[in-house]
Amino acid sequence: MSEYHDPSNVVNPEHADHHIVTPVTYSIVFATLLVMTGVTVGAAYIDLGLMNPVIALAIASFKAVIVILFFMHVKYQSKLVKLTVISGFFTFLVLTTMTLTDYISRAWGLW
């Protein structure tokens, strides 16, 4: 029992070990972000119809994820912090979906 009840957080520390992200990692992320910016600008000049916004947002999401994971160190944080970050974006998606269903259902067939 005492193995799990550990108020001093000594036997089984849940806090992530402190991890120093190196400039090499930061440089790789930086280069990736610049390349993806170039790709998204290039894709905007090609007419892909409905896929234009989808591709642009997919690239933006990819860039945001690597910023969050590496620049913001979330990859090296504890589960508490990871869960906090994910729950924030998840709540935003839920709110957006609920508001959209409201707008769509009020002007049924006119969207």
């Binding site: 910016t37 998204t40 090609i46 892909l48 119809g49 234009n52 916004p53």
Partner: peptide, 11 residues
Amino acid sequence: LFPLLYLINRH
């Protein structure tokens, strides 16, 4: 903001 405002409405 960049793709939403500048890019996705081009075509």
